[in-house]
Design a protein around this nucleic acid. Structure first.
Length: 254
DNA sequence: AATCCCAACAACCGCCGTCAC
DNA sequence: TGTGACGGCGGTTGTTGGGAT
């Protein structure tokens, strides 16, 4: 698909003639060209990237393709339960600040998180006939529903961890690093560790400890990918059972 | 087997902030 | 101070694949 346009933004090619711009899905060849160029020259100067590689793409398009797809360490695939909870938590604090939220989910892009929010959370809110941005919905999520989800995940993780420990003493659990956060999650979390639950009341004290990568040996931590996903409805918070519970909580609020 | 529908994801668009000139 | 180019962000749309009918 090609269109002819005089691009604004950073599609400007610095000449008056109109450049034929390719739109739509990227081909493997385009990916290869972009990847090789950035590997050699580094990120930035996106208009130059488009110009010097001969790609008939805008600078914006090159940047987006790199950030969301080609960049090393981009995590792809299902968003884990822990990531889902973290997204809910961070969104309750910052709203639609997708890039800021993405900073706390290593390897996830703002686009991916935004898509998750729209396709899952907003959809569920609609089904519950609730405004996703309403205080009622947000408070119920934050103070009732999420603690419950976390408690159950922790219980599952604990049992799995106990089993793992039995099977492999070399993976004995050591003392966690960092302090318990009074918020839901640590702001600087780059890895999340699950511990025996000590969930107490409805004050949303999550007791989910987070450690920055620099704070301790990563071997002592569950990384995202190491946290067990089995049990508790697979890798999705939005099971029928959970939604029913949420529905009850929302109903009780009135 | 064909068609339809919908969820998930990729990509585009418009706007805004920053910076250099 | 004004202006244009660039980079980034958030909203929106287009595409695609899989499940349902």
């Amino acid at each position: 698909m090609e269109r002819s346009l005089s691009e604004n933004g950073y599609g400007s090619y610095g000449s008056e003639e109109e450049i034929s711009i390719t739109k739509g899905p990227w081909t493997e060849q385009e990916d290869s060209v972009l990847f090789n160029y950035i590997t050699l020259h580094g990120e930035g100067h996106w208009n130059s990237v488009a110009r010097y590689t001969g790609l008939k793409r805008t600078g914006k398009s090159c940047r987006l393709r790199w950030l969301n797809y080609l960049r090393p360490n981009v995590r792809r695939g299902n968003i884990t339960l822990q990531e889902q909870l973290l997204i809910l938590d961070l969104h309750s604090r910052w709203g639609n600040r997708w890039s800021k939220i993405a900073e706390h989910l290593p390897g996830r892009t703002d686009n991916e998180i935004k898509n998750y929010w729209r396709t899952r959370v907003v959809k569920q809110a609609k089904q519950l006939k609730c405004d996703v941005n309403s205080k009622q919905f947000r408070d119920t999520l934050r103070f009732v529903w999420m603690p419950r989800m976390l408690e159950r995940i922790q219980a599952q993780a604990s049992s799995n961890h106990a089993q793992t420990t039995l099977n492999d003493t070399a993976q004995a659990h050591s003392e966690p690093c960092g302090a318990t956060n009074t918020g839901l999650f640590s702001e600087a979390s780059s890895a999340i560790e699950l511990h025996a639950p000590s969930f107490s009341d409805s004050s949303a004290c999550y007791n989910l400890r987070s450690c920055s990568a620099e704070e301790g040996s990563s071997s002592n931590l569950y990384s995202y990918s190491e946290i067990p996903e089995n049990g508790f409805g697979g890798a999705d918070l939005w099971t029928d059972e959970n939604i029913y519970f949420l529905q009850q909580q929302l109903a009780d609020d009135f």
